[in-house]
Each structure stands twice: as C-alpha cells, then as structure tokens.
Design a protein around this nucleic acid. Structure first.
Lengths: 203, 203
DNA sequence: CAACATACTAAGCGGTTGCTTAGAGCTAAG
DNA sequence: CTTAGCTCTAAGCAACCGCTTAGTATGTTG
C-alpha cells in the first residue's frame, strides 16, 4: 500500500495542525470527504489513506464528525482570511482583488472547498453554529466592499444583498466545476471572474 | 405517522411517473436525498416517507441507486427543457429569457436541483454517462445563445467557454443557497440574474 | 369456482458501520 | 530499573445498512 505520506504543496494549508499524525488524518479525511462525500467515507477509508489503523483516528479526534468540523472550521477561517485586508485604493480595485483571490482560493483548494461548501449539513448543531458565524463574516466582508462602491456611485445595483449573494455564489461554485486537468489555472479563473464581476456591478 | 400523501404544486414535475406508488417513492426519495444527501438516506427513510414498507421500494425500482438515477435523469431532462426553444428576437433577449428561466427553475425546484447537481458522484458509471450527455446538451444550449451574440457583436467576452461556464454556474448555484422562506421569489431571482448576466456580457 | 398475476408486508440475512476495549511499544522522569 | 504517560494496533461489539425471501391480500380471467 502506498499510503499518503508526502506533504504536497496544496497541503500547506494544514501546516498549523499538530501533531503530525493528526495532520495526516485531516489531509486524508479532507481528500476522502471531497472525493466521495462525508457519509460515503468510512473511518477505515480515512485511517487507510493516512497509513494508520482505524482506531488511531480516535486518538486525535473525538469522532468522524469532529474531523469534518476541523476541516470545515479551518477551511472557513482560511477563506475568510483571503477577504480580509484586501488591498486597493478604490472600491473597484478592492472588489477586483477580493473576487480574484476568493475565486482563486476556491479553485486552488477545491478539495477542501468542496467539503466546506457541500458538507455543512453533516455538522452537528453546535459545530454548525460556529461555521455559520464564519460564513456571516465572509458575507459581511464582501458586502462592505460593494457597499463602499455604491456609496461612491461607481457600482450600480438595485439590491445590495442580492448582488453580494450573486458575487459570492459565483466564486464559491468554482469549487464545484473546477478540475486541475482543465485549461484554466486558478490565477486565470480569478482574473476572468474579477473582470466579469466588475462589468456586472459597474454601469 | 403523517406519511407524505398529498400532491403538492411543486410535485407536478413528476406527473408522468406511474404507477402512483412509484411516483410517491420518487417524491419521497427526492426530498430525502436533497435534505440529507444520497448516502445519508436509507431505503427505510424513503419507504417511510412514502408511507410504505422498506421492501416496497424494490417492487418499482431495482436499487436505491436506480431511484437516484431516475430523479437525476428526469431533473436533467426538465432543466434542459427550459433552455429549449427560448423565445426572443435578439441574442440579448434570448439570453435574458434563458438565464431568467434557468435560474428560476433552480429556485422553484431547488429540492430536485440539489440532487441533480450534488449527487452526480453517487451514480454508477453507466447512469453517469447518460446524465453527462444531458449536461453537455445543457451547456451547448447556453453556449450557442452566447455565441450568436458574439457573432453579432453585442456580447463582448474574451472567452466563450469561460463565459458560458460562469453563466451556467451562477444559475445552478441558486439551488444551493435558495430558501423558500427567503425574501426573493423564484421569479425575482430570475429577473435579477437576467439583468446581472446581461451587464456581465454586453459592453 | 379455479388459476394466475400484481402489489404489498413481515421477517430477516450477510455485510458494513462508527466506535470501544485491552493491551503492546516507546519515551522519559525519578 | 520502575513507573507513568502517550501513541498506536488487533480484535470485536452493537447497531444499522441494502436488499431478499416467503407469504398474504386483492383483483382479473376463464
């Protein structure tokens, strides 16, 4: 068996997770959940991918659901991070930077992003409440940028909340259709989406 | 037990499914799959929702996966239907009509749409091939409308395939975030999205 | 009436699930 | 060396899974 051992470039997002075995479990679980879905993944799948016995999961995590929660929480925190302190002198610049980096994140980390976006329903109520708060913060970041542009008169949309929803939705759905084998790189997708959104909101 | 018996307005999409018990099973399965996901739904859940015994499922369907396939196939055929023979004298009009009705469909039938969009991976290879062909046709319908507009010079996008992907993605993702309890009706979402997409593609 | 077909249920089978238990191997302090 | 603590595994338990079997109720045809 060639259990996942090496630390790929894309796995650097888990670098703060210690100890080593706990991080390997998270990486294995993230890939399995993204590939087959939370409910179709067994704890034996995860342990096997991490190169350990099924019981080893429970040394580092309370339950399978706890693994999902850690992936979801860290994923949401990281995606919130790319919308924080977005550079740009004008709202148009800040929106372009926000959209390109947020869409880019959902392509680059599409594996984790799929778990983050499509497995919310598998979290228990307490854990769901934690990530729901993170999601409100993500929406708030994007909305405030669009709001700034509307106040300055450069964005022209009838419905602030609706426009925010559409912009976030567009970026998030990248995680669903993105394939690493496709023609577009995450950077190109980010650039294309920033352009499309700018045209969508400016008059 | 208050098993689901009545035939809601939203269930009219299954009107061609006979006999009655088979249709009740499909409706029950569609709701359960949308609510909890395919793998988290048991055949006992479905039978119970349809007001029948677990074994009754296998009178009308070969397997649980066959139920998913029928929902996915019919759902794809119906959503392809709303993109066929879209009225409009100009490409701009046809795109507006296509986007508004396609987005509207994903709001109105968000229950089925979620199964259609998020449970593709649970289909077996033969069934997956069938719906993959339907998905290619859906993409083709939208692309040809945008292509017409580019040929006439009214749409201005550098990447036809990328723009098609973005427009479809925007509409499809409505199924993820739409809630019947929300402020916007499916019609309003369709109108808003048609407007946003028109601005996104015209110069 | 008999003979057969259809639609359904009660019961349960073999396999798999998430998770636990008991204990082994290793490290490090006293 | 002893003891304690941490990380891990082998084995397995109770519950649940998709699906099957055997049999019942009902309707139809001659």
């Amino acid at each position: 068996m060639t259990a996942q051992q090496e630390f790929g470039v894309l796995d650097e997002m888990w670098r703060d997770v210690t100890p080593d075995a706990a991080r390997r479990m998270l990486i294995a679980a993230s890939r399995a959940f993204a590939d087959k879905g939370y409910h179709a993944t067994t704890t034996r799948d995860i342990a096997s991918l991490a190169g350990m016995s099924p019981a080893a999961v429970y040394i580092h995590y309370r339950s399978k659901e706890d693994l999902l929660f850690q992936i979801s929480r860290i994923g949401h925190e990281l995606s919130l991070g790319v919308l924080s302190d977005v550079p740009g002198a004008t709202p148009v610049e800040r929106l372009s930077n926000a959209v390109s980096s947020f869409a880019r994140w959902h392509a680059e980390y599409h594996t984790t992003a799929r778990v983050v976006q499509y497995e919310l329903g598998a979290l228990n109520p307490a854990h769901h409440a934690v990530v729901a708060e993170l999601r409100r913060q993500i929406e708030g970041k994007m909305r405030s940028i669009i709001e700034d542009g509307m106040r300055e008169g450069v964005f022209d949309v009838p419905d602030l909340k609706g426009a925010t929803l559409a912009v976030l939705s567009l970026c998030i759905d990248v995680a669903r259709w993105y394939q690493p084998s496709g023609k577009r790189t995450p950077d190109q997708i980010g650039a294309m989406y920033a352009d499309l959104v700018r045209r969508m909101l400016t008059n």
